[in-house]
């Protein structure tokens, strides 16, 4: 009987974009443009491309604003891979202070105008719009991962 290769548990992922730049807001557009062109090239709708940009912006702004507080400025890195189904797997990486942004408390969306705040919306958007949102600390790096399915 011929040997049948077992399908691996992890789908095969191909890297389609890597961006590593100083974690400063002037570089926001480079990250968003790279992510948008990946999503666009893989057939995502314009609305979905906008959602990809939204969650990447929120994560990048967090890195640029907080990751290197009290230490020399560092970098932000984005790696985008595609799987066989055409879903995108995004990693956002910094070498700043350990911080699990997925553990941030959910924003209070019911508060009246005087008590309403915007903080915490970024990770909330990510959890609403993306799948498999996870954080890990590996080799001195914060790694935020999520999967972009074709539709939210």
């Amino acid at each position: 009987m011929p040997k049948i290769f077992e399908k691996p548990n992890m789908p095969e992922l191909i890297v389609i974009s890597e961006v590593k730049l100083p974690a400063a807001l002037d570089h926001l557009r480079e990250f968003l443009d790279a992510a948008a062109s990946c999503a666009h090239a893989h057939g995502f709708t314009a609305e979905r491309v906008g959602e990809v940009e939204l969650v990447i912006e929120e994560a990048f702004v967090n890195i640029a604003s907080y990751a290197y507080e009290g230490q020399p400025p560092g970098t932000a890195e984005m790696v985008i891979k595609v799987d066989e189904a055409g879903d995108l797997h995004v990693e956002l990486i910094d070498e700043g202070v350990p911080f699990d942004s997925t553990a941030v408390a959910e924003p209070d969306l019911e508060a009246d105008i005087d008590n309403r705040k915007i903080g915490g919306l970024g990770i909330f958007f990510m959890k609403q719009l993306m799948d498999d949102v996870s954080y890990s600390r590996e080799d001195g790096k914060n790694i935020l991962r999520f999967t972009v399915a074709r539709t939210a």
Binding site: G50, L54, E57
Partner: peptide
């Protein structure tokens, strides 16, 4: 307006 993120929403609020 083509796109808004939480930075823009913060200005609205």
């Amino acid at each position: 307006l083509e796109y808004v993120s939480s930075a823009g929403l913060r200005v609205f609020l």
